[in-house]
C-alpha cells in the first residue's frame, strides 16, 4: 500500500481510546469516508478492543474502496496492544513493525 501521505487527511487519535471513545471514533472515521486518511496514533496511551474494531473495519472499508488508510505514526502502546491482540493488519501496523 503506500505511496503518498502528503495529500491525505490526518486524523489525530486521542490519548485514551477506551470503550467510551469507540462511538466518537466511529463517527470521526465515518466522516472521512471516501478520502485517503492517515491515522496519527502517536499520542495513544491506552487503546481498547472496541476502538480497534472500529479502526480495523475502517481499514477494510477503505481498502475495498481503494483508498489509502494507514496508521502512522503510532505509539508503542498502540503497536504493542495490536500485537498482543494478534491483529496483524498492515493498515493498522506501521510497515516497519511488520516482520
Amino acid at each position: 500500500m503506500s505511496s503518498d501521505g502528503t495529500s491525505a487527511k490526518v486524523l489525530k487519535l486521542p490519548e485514551v481510546l477506551d470503550l467510551n471513545a469507540a462511538s466518537r471514533l466511529h463517527e470521526q472515521v465515518l466522516a472521512h469516508k471516501g478520502e485517503d486518511i492517515d491515522i496519527d496514533a502517536s499520542d495513544v496511551s491506552r487503546v481498547g478492543a472496541q476502538c480497534l474494531q472500529v479502526l480495523l473495519a475502517a481499514a477494510k472499508s477503505w481498502r475495498a474502496e481503494d483508498q489509502n488508510f494507514k496508521v502512522q505514526p503510532a505509539s508503542d502502546v498502540f503497536i504493542k496492544t495490536l500485537q498482543l491482540l494478534g491483529i496483524s493488519d498492515e493498515a493498522l501496523l506501521p510497515k516497519e513493525m511488520l516482520k
Binding site: L19, A22, S23, L25, H26, V29, L30, K33, A49, Q50, L52, Q53, V54, L56, A57, A58, K60, S61, A64, L84, L85, G86, I87, S88, D89
Partner: peptide, 27 residues
C-alpha cells in the same frame, strides 16, 4: 502467548456498532 485475532465477524464500517463485540481470539 501466540495470539490470533478472528476478525471475520467484523462488519463493514457503516454497519458497525462501535460498542459491539466482533473480535474473537484463538490463543
Amino acid at each position: 502467548l501466540q495470539v490470533r485475532c478472528e476478525t471475520d465477524d467484523l462488519p463493514s464500517l457503516d454497519m458497525l456498532d462501535p460498542e459491539g463485540a466482533y473480535f474473537s481470539w484463538l490463543i
